[in-house]
């Protein structure tokens, strides 16, 4: 069993399945996006015991002892998490492909630094690529998220 978004889910059908593919193909949680599949783009970021990790760089079977949170599990049904609200307010997404990864990377950043400095923000999102080049608004959204999270 693997705990995903607070629910017990069945084990992956094969030990070779990456966590990213398990979430998408076996659980239908397609909010976890798959871009480069070698750890560069950050689109597949999920929280493992509250810390952001690349789901394409883990076997699903390795998540067995842990709690996985995907973008679907970040806020309650029909609600926006403060980070999602901040991205919405600051226009921090264009095509939206990178957004789930950014939001979860920022969740990890804010869990570690409640009021991150500009440098800490840049470092915190440095592992995520946005091909629409929305970085300036994403930075603004991180600052806004710290206000909304109070």
């Amino acid at each position: 069993m693997i705990r995903v978004n607070g629910r017990e889910r069945p084990d992956p059908t094969n030990v070779r399945i990456l966590l990213s593919d398990y979430l998408r193909h076996e659980l239908g949680l397609t909010g976890t996006h798959v871009g480069c599949e070698h750890g560069v783009c950050g689109c597949c970021t999920v929280l493992l015991d509250g810390r952001p990790v690349r789901s394409c760089l883990m076997l699903a079977v390795q998540a067995g002892r842990h709690e996985v949170t995907t973008i679907e599990g970040l806020a309650g049904e029909g609600k926006l998490h403060p980070i999602q609200q901040a991205f919405h307010e600051c226009h921090a997404l264009q095509c939206g492909f990178c957004t789930p990864g950014f939001v979860l990377a920022v969740a990890g950043l804010l869990a570690k630094h409640r009021k991150p400095s500009d440098l800490e923000i840049d470092e915190g999102i440095s592992g995520n690529l946005c091909r629409c080049t929305g970085y300036a608004s994403i930075r603004r959204a991180v600052r806004r998220a710290t206000e909304l999270s109070k």
Binding site: T45, R51, P52, V53, R54, A105, L109, E123, G127, N128
Partner: peptide, 9 residues
């Protein structure tokens, strides 16, 4: 070393 998210693992 790489990025914070990579270093988490």
């Amino acid at each position: 070393v790489a990025h914070p998210v990579i270093r988490n693992r």
